[in-house]
Design a protein around this nucleic acid. Structure first.
Length: 295
DNA sequence: AACCACTTCAACCGCTTTTGG
DNA sequence: CCCAAAAGCGGTTGAAGTGGT
């Protein structure tokens, strides 16, 4: 016996949505909210599967959708996030207000992947190809090495955090890390301040966090309030329907246990070690790479 | 103008995860 | 805790659009 269909197939319309269907869906959701997607088609009078309605709304009709081409900043961000998160399109989309996972997935598959390939960068690993191609051992650039270090350490820290669930369960919900914790930390004011700090004082401040623990020369992170909500990219408007609880990153967060101190130290160390100057310059020089000889 | 190859992206499919009884 | 339903997610498809010959 095959899989039970997600909805009653008989008489349901498939394929592209018409303007009148869009209007019905928009009007219904504006009036009643989407409620249960499964029951929405019946209630609204649409002859569509609930799943199809949800997809149409979330990918196209939602009022906070930002249409139009991706900006350079957005493209850079997608590449950076993909290096960290892989094909977790929904997680990537959550960092780009107004963009959908489907849109980002399409952008990646149609543009960015090809551009990376043309640049000699493996879109899967974000490591440069050697002359032998993608299957040979890649030669890491500092930026891509950091990407890999970041990801492996992030996974390690995540695993540790899951072990520490007892500790975190005792915290208020607003300070509990979620799977995107480190990503949001990186995008936060803390991440930004460290990027700046690390850039300005690299010569005499190898690692601000280690300095912070032993000296005040390079500053301290204690007591910094970070807003870990979705970032506002270059030209995007800072609105979002997905609001995130701001969290306080302060001494109390990391001093409650040695284990958790390790975790937050790991996260901050990662922020510090993350390259300030990701070599994304190729994106800004699109013409140079739009038609490379081998592509 | 007609044909073909290629690209793009909205929509679908089916698997996984979450939720609620 | 278990199970079914619902929602979420990522991979894939195919129609429409575009450019080249």
């Amino acid at each position: 016996m095959g899989r039970r269909p997600c909805c009653e197939r008989k008489g349901l319309k498939k394929g592209p949505w018409g303007p009148e269907e869009d209007e019905i869906l928009i009007n219904y959701i504006n009036k009643h909210g989407h409620g249960s997607w499964r029951s929405l088609p019946k209630l609204s009078g649409l002859r569509r599967c609930g799943k199809s309605c949800r997809l149409r709304w979330t990918n196209y009709l939602r009022p906070d959708i930002k249409r139009g081409p991706f900006t350079l900043d957005e493209e850079k961000l997608v590449i950076q996030l993909h290096a960290i998160l892989g094909n977790r399109w929904a997680a990537i989309a959550s960092q780009l207000p107004g963009r959908t996972d489907n849109e980002i997935k399409n952008l990646w598959n149609t543009h960015l992947k090809k551009r990376l390939l043309c640049m000699g960068v493996d879109p899967l690993t974000h490591e440069p190809f050697t002359s032998g191609g993608p299957t040979t051992r890649p030669r890491s650039s500092p930026a891509t090495r950091h990407m890999a270090q970041w990801e492996s350490a992030r996974l390690e820290a995540e695993a540790r955090l899951s072990k520490e669930s007892l500790f975190f369960n005792s915290l208020p919900t607003s300070v509990k890390p979620d799977p995107d914790f480190f990503l949001r930390l990186w995008n936060s004011e803390v991440g930004e301040s460290f990027r700046k700090l690390n850039g300005e004082a690299k010569a005499d401040c190898r690692s601000p966090i280690s300095q912070a623990s032993s000296s005040t020369k390079c500053g301290s992170v204690s007591g910094v309030t970070i807003d870990v909500g979705p970032i506002a990219t270059g030209s995007s408007t800072p609105k979002s329907s997905r609001t995130e609880d701001p969290i306080m990153f302060d001494a109390s967060f990391s001093s409650s246990s040695n284990e958790s101190e390790d975790s937050s130290d790991t996260a901050l160390q990662l922020l510090l070690d993350f390259p300030i100057n990701n070599d994304m310059s190729f994106l800004e020089d699109v013409d140079t790479y739009a038609t490379p000889p081998q592509c």
